Simulated assay, not measured.
Amino acid sequence: MADAEQIDLNAPHAPSDKAIEAFEVVEHTIKSEILKSRHHWNKHEPRMWSRAEGVSDEDLVAFSVRNDLVEVRSAPTSYGTIILGKIRLPAINDAEGEGYIHVRIHDPPNRGTEDVRFHSLWTDEGNRDADGHPTTWRAIHNRDTPLEFFNE
Rank of each mutant, 00 (worst) to 15 (best):
N10L: 08
P12C: 00
S16K: 11
S16Y: 03
D17R: 10
D17W: 08
K18W: 06
K18S: 12
K18M: 11
A19Y: 06
E21V: 02
A22H: 02
A22E: 05
E24W: 08
E24Y: 11
H28E: 15
H28T: 14
K31I: 02
K31P: 00
S32H: 14
S32R: 15
E33M: 12
E33W: 06
L35I: 09
K36G: 06
S37Q: 09
R38V: 01
R38H: 02
W41P: 09
N42W: 03
H44Y: 13
H44K: 12
E45H: 11
P46Y: 06
R47L: 08
S50D: 14
A52Y: 01
A52P: 03
A52S: 11
G54F: 01
G54H: 01
G54I: 07
S56R: 13
S56D: 15
D57K: 12
D57R: 12
E58N: 13
F63N: 01
R66Y: 12
N67K: 13
N67G: 13
N67F: 11
D68H: 11
L69C: 06
V70W: 01
S74N: 07
P76F: 01
P76C: 07
T77M: 01
S78A: 15
Y79N: 15
T81Q: 04
T81M: 03
I82N: 01
I83C: 05
L84R: 00
K86N: 03
I87M: 02
P90H: 05
A91I: 02
A91P: 12
D94M: 10
A95K: 14
A95M: 11
A95Y: 10
E96T: 13
G97L: 03
E98N: 14
Y100C: 05
I101K: 01
H102C: 06
R104E: 05
I105V: 10
H106A: 07
P108C: 04
P109G: 02
N110D: 15
R111F: 07
G112C: 05
T113L: 14
E114Q: 12
D115N: 14
V116Q: 05
R117E: 12
F118Q: 04
H119T: 15
H119K: 15
S120I: 01
L121G: 09
W122M: 13
T123P: 08
E125W: 13
G126W: 00
G126E: 03
N127A: 13
A130Q: 07
P134I: 03
P134F: 04
P134M: 03
T135N: 03
T135K: 02
